[in-house]
């Protein structure tokens, strides 16, 4: 699989790069928890993805790049999660989100010919409506009744007044498992509240240019038309840091090197990260990540 991926990118003249796993800063996303590594009086952070470092390379003029490497996320352990996992991440200067989805489809179809027989695309709004009967902009009370109808206990306690939590919960429980099987399914144009590091559509700022790709309900990857506006990026990071503080989480330093690179100018581009362990799991028809890893951390059992 790894050899095939490298051939795919070599043919397309995408450069393989390597960036550090230990960094002085880390993506502050409050829902992706990182490991802090003490080193004498200093602290390093194990990277939750190579995204910020690769974007610094893009700003320095690297051109199209990809990386196959480890990423670490604290506390994520379950059937489809391991705290240490392998990511394939790549960036395409000049690509629209559409072009990148086509390239992701080409790669995944080449890697999973036995599992996928075609490609389906939904906008987030279409997928949400198709499988819940609701608009993602529906009043919270409608989302709440839907959760009751689906018998999801504790939904109100978990989600409170946060639309993003309601959407995530309903999407995970009602949409994801019902996406068409045996196909590559792209869900794109996410609500802006789930933009993460994606750009919002210039013509419709309520929608973020982000996609996720699924096979048989398993999320394999997440892609963005990358945010290049440094001021907007700084605002989002500061918002994340404040939320971390409120949630009582570790608050890492702002990644000023990354922000400086954005300020110097990162080319317009699209980028994506694919969980390679999950791709292998799907390829081999297994249900648990631990089935396809050498020496996985065991779930409590």
């Amino acid at each position: 699989m790894l050899a095939r991926i490298r051939r795919f990118f070599a043919r397309r003249s995408v450069l393989e790069v390597e960036t550090p796993l230990l960094g002085a800063a880390v993506n502050p996303d409050p829902y992706v928890e990182f490991f802090t590594v003490p080193d004498g009086g200093r602290r390093h952070y194990l990277q939750t993805s190579p995204e910020l470092a690769m974007k610094r390379l893009l700003a320095a003029g690297s051109g199209p790049i990809y990386q196959i490497g480890k990423a670490f996320r604290r506390g994520d352990i379950g059937r489809l999660h391991q705290p240490e996992f392998t990511l394939l991440e790549w960036y395409r200067p000049g690509f629209t989100l559409d072009q990148l989805m086509d390239e992701v489809a080409a790669l995944l179809q080449a890697l999973l010919p036995e599992r996928v027989a075609g490609v389906t695309r939904f906008t987030y709004g279409e997928a949400f409506r198709e499988f819940t009967g609701l608009s993602w902009e529906a009043p919270l009370s409608a989302l709440r009744s839907k959760a009751e109808e689906l018998d999801i206990p504790d939904a109100a306690r978990l989600c409170g007044d946060d639309r993003r939590h309601w959407l995530d919960l309903l999407f995970s429980v009602a949409v994801q498992p019902r996406l068409p099987a045996s196909r590559l399914v792209f869900v794109h144009d996410y609500p802006a509240c789930m933009a993460a590091l994606a750009r919002c559509k210039p013509a419709d700022p309520s929608v973020a240019e982000r996609f996720e790709v699924f096979v048989d309900g398993v999320e394999l990857g997440n892609g963005y038309r990358e945010l290049t506006d440094v001021e907007e990026q700084r605002r989002r990071f500061q918002h994340d840091l404040r939320l971390r503080q409120r949630l009582g989480q570790v608050v890492p330093p702002l990644d000023e090197d990354f922000l400086a690179a954005l300020a110097a100018g990162m080319p317009e581009c699209s980028g994506v990260a694919i969980g390679l362990d999950r791709v292998l799991m799907v390829k081999l028809g297994r249900r648990r990540l631990s089935d396809v890893l050498t020496f996985p951390l065991q779930e409590p059992s």
Binding site: V32, A155, H165
Partner: peptide, 29 residues
């Protein structure tokens, strides 16, 4: 079951048996 949406809040869907009544119930945390 540990469930984690793309970039969202993670949760656990858990099935329990009440040891007094024998009833099976589901909760989310």
């Amino acid at each position: 079951e540990f469930v984690k949406p793309g970039k969202g809040q993670a949760f656990n869907r858990v099935k329990f048996r009440n040891l007094k009544t024998g009833r099976v119930l589901e909760r989310t945390f």
